[in-house]
C-alpha cells in the first residue's frame, strides 16, 4: 500500500541560513517552510497558486511557495518574511495602514520587496502587473498602493 513514507533529504538556504530538512518528494516548499522550519509567515490561502499569500522571494524573484516543491528549492536562496528586518516596505505597510487582518500581508510584502529590488522605477502598469498575483480581501488596495509607491523611486514624489 502507498504510505507516502518515502522521504528525501534536502539542503535549503532560507533567510541566509543553511537548513537540512527531510521531506517527501511531494511536499511543497510552503509546507516545509511552515511545518519543518517553523516559518509560518508564508500563509496557505489556496495551495493552488491563486492568492499569493504564500509568496516568498527566490533568488531575488517572488515565488508562490505553494506551487513549488521543496526539492526544487534545493540550492537556491529563499527569503521569507521572517528574513526581512525593518525594511522600508514593512514600515510603509504599517504606516499606510496597508493591512487589516494581516493574512495576505507577508505575501504582499514579499512581492513588493522583490518589486522594489528589481524595478525600483516601476510604473503603475508594472506595479499592477506584479501585485495582481496576490489577493487582499480586507482592504480596497488603496493603502497597499500607497505603501508600495512610498518606497518606489517613482512613487516618492507623487505622494
Amino acid at each position: 500500500m502507498r504510505d507516502g513514507a518515502h522521504v528525501v533529504k534536502i539542503e535549503l538556504y532560507v533567510n541566509r541560513e543553511g537548513r537540512s530538512v527531510v521531506a517527501r518528494p511531494a511536499d511543497t516548499l510552503l509546507h516545509i517552510l511552515r511545518e519543518e522550519l517553523g516559518l509560518t509567515g508564508a500563509k496557505p490561502g489556496c495551495n493552488n497558486g491563486d492568492c499569493g499569500a504564500c509568496t516568498v522571494v527566490m533568488d531575488g524573484w517572488p515565488m508562490k511557495s505553494c506551487i513549488m516543491l521543496a526539492v526544487e528549492a534545493a540550492g537556491r536562496q529563499v527569503t521569507t518574511i521572517e528574513g526581512l528586518r525593518d525594511t522600508p516596505i514593512q514600515r510603509a505597510f504599517a504606516e499606510k495602514w496597508a493591512f487589516q487582518c494581516g493574512y495576505c500581508t507577508p505575501g504582499f510584502i514579499m512581492n513588493c520587496h522583490a518589486l522594489i529590488q528589481n524595478r525600483p522605477d516601476a510604473t503603475d502598469e508594472i506595479i499592477t502587473d506584479w501585485l495582481q498575483s496576490n489577493i487582499c480581501r480586507c482592504t480596497g488596495y488603496k493603502e497597499i498602493s500607497e505603501a508600495v509607491k512610498s518606497v518606489l523611486v517613482t512613487g516618492k514624489d507623487t505622494l
Binding site: T40, A42, I81, E82, Q90, A94, F99, G102
Partner: peptide, 8 residues
C-alpha cells in the same frame, strides 16, 4: 498589532 503583522 502592526509590528506583528508586518513581520510575519
Amino acid at each position: 498589532e502592526s509590528p506583528d503583522k508586518a513581520t510575519g
